[in-house]
Amino acid sequence: MRDSPLAPFSRVYKELRLPVGPGGKGRYGWADVVVWIPSGPNFVIEIDSVPKPASAEKLVFATGCV
């Protein structure tokens, strides 16, 4: 990424607060790592020690808002 022409414009966030469900529904969750690349793919990374349904819900929602 460092050698990419997009590198100066890319952003990495840790523990970014995201609404969990459509419309927020008053619930928020934290995405562990978000990599935002303008005009490119964005990455949302969730790190858990065991599978959690809430984490999967955050990732599904993040696909539409990041």
Rank of each mutant, 00 (worst) to 15 (best):
V60F: 06
R27L: 14
I47N: 02
G64S: 06
G29N: 08
F43D: 00
V60W: 04
K52Y: 09
G64P: 05
S4W: 05
M1W: 11
V60K: 09
N42E: 10
W36F: 12
L59K: 01
G29W: 06
V34S: 01
W30T: 15
G26D: 07
K25Y: 06
E46D: 03
S49Y: 13
S49L: 15
A62W: 04
P22H: 07
P22N: 06
K58R: 12
A31N: 00
I47D: 00
P5M: 04
A56H: 06
A7E: 10
A56M: 08
D3K: 14
P41Y: 03
P22E: 07
G21R: 14
A62N: 02
I37A: 09
R17M: 11
E57I: 11
K14G: 08
G40E: 13
N42F: 08
P51V: 11
L59S: 01
S39I: 14
D48Q: 10
V66N: 04
E15F: 09
K14R: 11
D3G: 14
K14V: 15
E57S: 07
G24W: 14
E46C: 04
P5Q: 05
F9R: 09
P8W: 08
G21A: 12
A62K: 03
P19A: 14
D32Q: 02
R11I: 09
K25F: 05
V50F: 03
S55C: 03
G29P: 06
V44S: 01
F61L: 10
P38W: 05
K14N: 10
G26T: 15
S10C: 05
S10P: 00
V60Y: 06
F43E: 00
D3S: 14
I45T: 06
S49M: 14
L18T: 07
C65A: 08
G24C: 15
M1H: 12
A54N: 08
A56G: 06
G23Y: 02
P8F: 07
R27F: 11
A7P: 09
G29M: 05
V66Y: 05
G29I: 13
D3P: 12
W36N: 12
E15R: 11
K25A: 13
I47M: 02
R2M: 07
V66F: 08
V50C: 03
L59M: 04
K58A: 04
G40P: 15
S55K: 00
Y28F: 12
P19K: 13
E57R: 08
W30G: 13
P5Y: 02
L59E: 01
V50T: 07
V44H: 01
A62I: 12
L18F: 12
R11W: 03
A7R: 09
V35L: 11
P38T: 12
S10N: 01
A31Y: 00
E46Q: 05
V44F: 01
V44E: 01
R2S: 08
K58S: 04
L59A: 02
L18S: 03
G26I: 14
P22L: 06
V33K: 00
P53W: 03
V66D: 02
F43Q: 00
L59T: 02
D48G: 07
